[in-house]
Design a protein around this nucleic acid. Structure first.
Lengths: 223, 223
DNA sequence: TACGATGTGATTGAATCCAATTGCAAGAGA
DNA sequence: TCTCTTGCAATTGGATTCAATCACATCGTA
């Protein structure tokens, strides 16, 4: 199947956006090779803007480039993934701190709804989407320039493993996640930034420790 | 003057490295335009690898690209600079935590020497170099993949403003910096990671608060 | 004189073409 | 049969060439 996504122009940015979406959606998994010619054909462009797009994605940690050899969708070791989570533990509470004072009552109500909506669903993709929506909404009024994008990159870089990980959630693990989400909303409601930081820190940290109990997620085949 | 820096090959990475060094050394300052043709000629290459190099530096926050318009050395507002410092406050203590258990006695001795050496110098460039050497040595045995590079990018992105800022240091400000460095070394010596984190957090935080007292550093002319 | 439209030069963006490097496979030799 | 060498095909990297966009200056008009 060959979809002509973009009519005429196929700037490096558009290609980067498209490739990013493909990777985040799981259409191409970690370790899979990305051939310049292929994506060039897919986007109706030449290889030059594709190379620029690959540089962009490399900087985001989504793609790994090896000189004169090729590009692969980045593969994380368990240690690297834990590292990214530890960075998130430190940065996301800060981002939430910036956002809380500016969050409107409507947005807090929406956070409530999202936290409840997640409890009913069972689909993995729906869970991932709602979880992302929830946290992002909680960050959405942070008046920052670089911190938000940094956090976004951290989420993107670990997206694939979060998906795989979520499939292994037990009922209890799910319940804990939901409880923590409600605690976060409560702290936001009270405008208690310190408590919100604490809860969010623990939320991410607990997820990391849970993740470390599934090292098999990182036993990649060598393809 | 036309210097053929690289004999034959002028890969995108080499150009990126060279440009990065030029920016960090202050040879080109924030707000200055970077013309593709210029750097291409400077490195004896065509504009294609230059564009890739600019993408790399853009991702590092050193260069700002505007479509169909051009590239400029990134300029920070006071708010952005403070944001970067706040990120550093959260991440560098973590990085130090990873490094401390692995630091050898020789390296700790070298940290002592660097902390003392900084007290004697008066040159701004020497101070910057020693300060960087000091902190980097303290991080050098952290067994991390992404955290170290993240911190490095944060340092690079703020390098120019640190240079300008250092020139405004009072004698007292210098003394405080040196005292904090000695405290850091002491904590490392005791292998007290919690104390080291605390001291380093305060060290960066205090610098940020000091920085905020010099908003004129960010009053850029519009060129 | 101030303001807006238009055209031109300069610069960036992308396509095509050519060179260089890599990985693999086939074959020779021990 | 195993290993090392050698050559070819596939793929990436870079130079050149062509197209598109933007900024600025010039001119015209109110």
């Amino acid at each position: 199947m060959k979809v002509a996504k973009t009519e005429h122009g196929a700037s490096a940015h558009r290609i980067a956006d498209g490739l990013r979406e493909s990777i985040l959606a799981g259409e191409v998994g970690p370790g899979e090779r990305v051939r310049q010619e292929m994506v060039a054909a897919q986007y109706g462009a030449s290889r030059v803007p594709v190379r620029e797009a690959l540089r962009i994605l490399e900087a985001e940690g989504l793609v790994t480039l090896v000189a004169n050899t090729g590009a692969w969708v980045s593969r994380l070791s368990l240690a690297e993934c834990e590292e990214l989570y530890q960075i998130r533990e430190r940065l996301e509470p800060l981002l939430l701190r910036f956002s809380i004072p500016n969050l409107s009552g409507e947005k807090i109500a929406e956070l409530h709804r999202l936290a409840f909506a997640m409890e009913t669903g069972t689909d993995v993709e729906a869970f991932l989407r709602l979880d992302r929506d929830f946290h992002w909404l909680s960050y959405s009024d942070a008046d920052t320039n670089v911190l938000g994008e940094t956090v976004q990159r951290l989420w993107n870089a670990t997206q694939h493993y979060r998906r795989a990980f979520t499939r292994l959630f037990t009922i209890d693990a799910h319940r804990t996640v939901h409880q923590e989400h409600h605690l976060i909303v409560h702290a936001i409601e009270q405008r208690d930034v310190d408590d919100a930081e604490r809860v969010l820190y623990g939320h991410i940290r607990r997820t990391r420790l849970e993740l470390a109990r599934h090292p098999q997620l990182f036993d990649h085949a060598d393809n």
